[in-house]
């Protein structure tokens, strides 16, 4: 028997590590991976909440799980596009360092 809150805390931990990695990592591919980590944390939260509502209402609730299914589909589409963009950038600039991709100044 595990409190569902533990699962939710785990998802918060993973999400925060993802946010920190997004800000700190300097390789574009790793930065993109940290976004995938954040999405995974969201998925865990959805499944945990889905389970919680099943227990609260007394019968199976799958809405949260369906959401996760769609997040996976979207993540796959995003990965295809994102990696294509990364390849295009690499061809144009020959670097994968975020700090060197600075033709335009903020």
């Amino acid at each position: 028997m595990v409190p569902i809150a533990y699962y939710l805390v785990l998802s918060a931990v993973l999400f925060s590590i993802g946010v920190a990695a997004f800000l700190i990592k300097r390789n574009i591919i790793t930065v993109f991976m940290s976004i995938e980590l954040m999405l995974n944390a969201v998925n865990l939260a959805f499944i945990a909440f889905s389970r919680q509502w099943s227990q609260t209402t007394g019968h199976l609730q799958v809405n949260g799980q369906i959401f996760v299914f769609f997040v996976m589909v979207v993540a796959a589409a995003e990965a295809a596009v994102g990696l294509a963009i990364i390849i295009a950038v690499f061809r144009a600039r020959n670097t994968l360092n975020v700090d060197q991709i600075d033709l335009m100044k903020l």
Binding site: M1, I4, A5, S16, A20, L23, Q52
Partner: peptide, 27 residues
């Protein structure tokens, strides 16, 4: 970034743990 991520983690953890009873246990 770091304080932001840490604050987010602290806030979410606090909320989840303080509502722990309402969320119930998974068997």
């Amino acid at each position: 970034g770091f304080p932001g991520a840490a604050a987010l983690l602290g806030l979410l953890t606090y909320i989840f743990l303080s509502h722990s009873a309402a969320f119930g246990h998974a068997r």
